[in-house]
Design a protein around this nucleic acid. Structure first.
Lengths: 202, 202
DNA sequence: TATTGTGAAATCGTTCACAGCA
DNA sequence: TGCTGTGAACGATTTCACAATA
């Protein structure tokens, strides 16, 4: 990947979202200044970002073609991929994620959930299995992505299991700090930290 | 606030968590190297971070006092504060947040939730009011913090309302990109972006 | 000797300013 | 003239290396 910082990656995702909206609205050309202001970034930063993308370029005195930008960013981000994801921990958070349909449009399919107690989530066809079947399921389906939504106290153990069974991408929704091998990538989402950060802004 | 970058702020919160755990375990002194490895950061970075905290200092050839560090970080972060928070949008996500007890220990009290339809969440004494009562509630209780968990399509409008009614800190759980006055601080949490970011790590 | 505190160096990311082009 | 592409300046952050010291 061309740029590997999280901020840059998130900017590309924002560009992508805004560009596809513009495309749907029939906008075919846009200047760096306009697109930047829609995306809440500076115009020169946007141009620098675009320069890193193979195939993305604009026309001087005209602007960027929305469709060209869209497809070159999509290509760079491998937006064609489709990944199967398991969810571990079906508390209120986990159950909310099962009902959340936002992942599918981005090529992430939650194929199963796991909890101490198998159960059934209403309005959902995603099965909830017991933890005993975790190993066989992960290995049989060669799952690489997992969302960790267990209680904090269980987080480390469950994460270790997941990794042992072949998971290499972990979205960690628990406050626990995970230590993982270099081959495994973790994204931590900690709502309490976000709130604390808001608290001391200015 | 001494350091205002998000990364730095999150490191301080991590230090705080780990230090309070160490304190509970009866550890009284720890070296930068040890604490750093617990917190997944470099030792010299940790020392630099500590240097920015008024009152925090260690002893050469000995290490840092856990209690001293703990209280100076707490003081710097104003950890004594207590803030009332409203939640807007009681879909599956919002309902999960209402049941989530993690905020309280950090001085955030969810005092009310709002949705198009007032309702009752089981196992919770947090009331869910209709959107009509938003304005009077926010102004009467002088609420500064809100968690935005409405559908994306409603996000901008609701955010504008919240700001108009006095909210200045917004945890945005929707994928919408909000544009707000400088006096208002927004933290965006976008689980889809986090997943996409994991996808292209190496 | 073990460890902090810290200046200097290296790295990384952003913004500026403007040349060059349609 | 309006816009992109980009080198250079700037700023922020991280790492290094080591002097100081309990």
């Amino acid at each position: 990947m061309v740029g590997s910082s999280k901020q840059l990656a998130f900017r590309y995702l924002t560009y992508l979202n805004m560009l596809s909206r513009l495309d749907r609205q029939g906008v075919s050309v846009i200047s760096s200044h306009n697109l930047a202001s829609i995306c809440n970034v500076g115009a020169s930063q946007l141009r620098k970002d675009m320069m890193l993308i193979p195939g993305a370029s604009g026309k001087q005195s005209v602007g960027y073609s929305v469709k060209v930008l869209l497809s070159s960013i999509q290509q760079m981000l491998h937006r064609d991929q489709n990944d199967r994801v398991v969810l571990v921990g079906v508390g209120s958070f986990g159950a909310a994620l099962i009902k959340y349909r936002g992942f599918e449009a981005h090529g992430f399919e939650i194929v199963a959930a796991f909890d101490l107690q198998p159960s059934v989530i209403e309005n959902s066809d995603i099965p909830v299995y017991s933890m005993e079947s975790l190993e066989s399921f992960l290995q049989e389906h060669k799952i690489k992505f997992a969302i960790l939504a267990v209680p904090e106290s269980a987080a480390k153990n469950v994460a270790d299991q997941l990794i042992r069974f072949g998971v290499t991408r972990l979205l960690n929704l628990t406050p626990a700090l995970l230590t993982v091998p270099d081959s495994v990538k973790v994204s931590d989402v900690n709502l309490v930290y976000e709130m604390e950060f808001l608290r001391r802004q200015l």
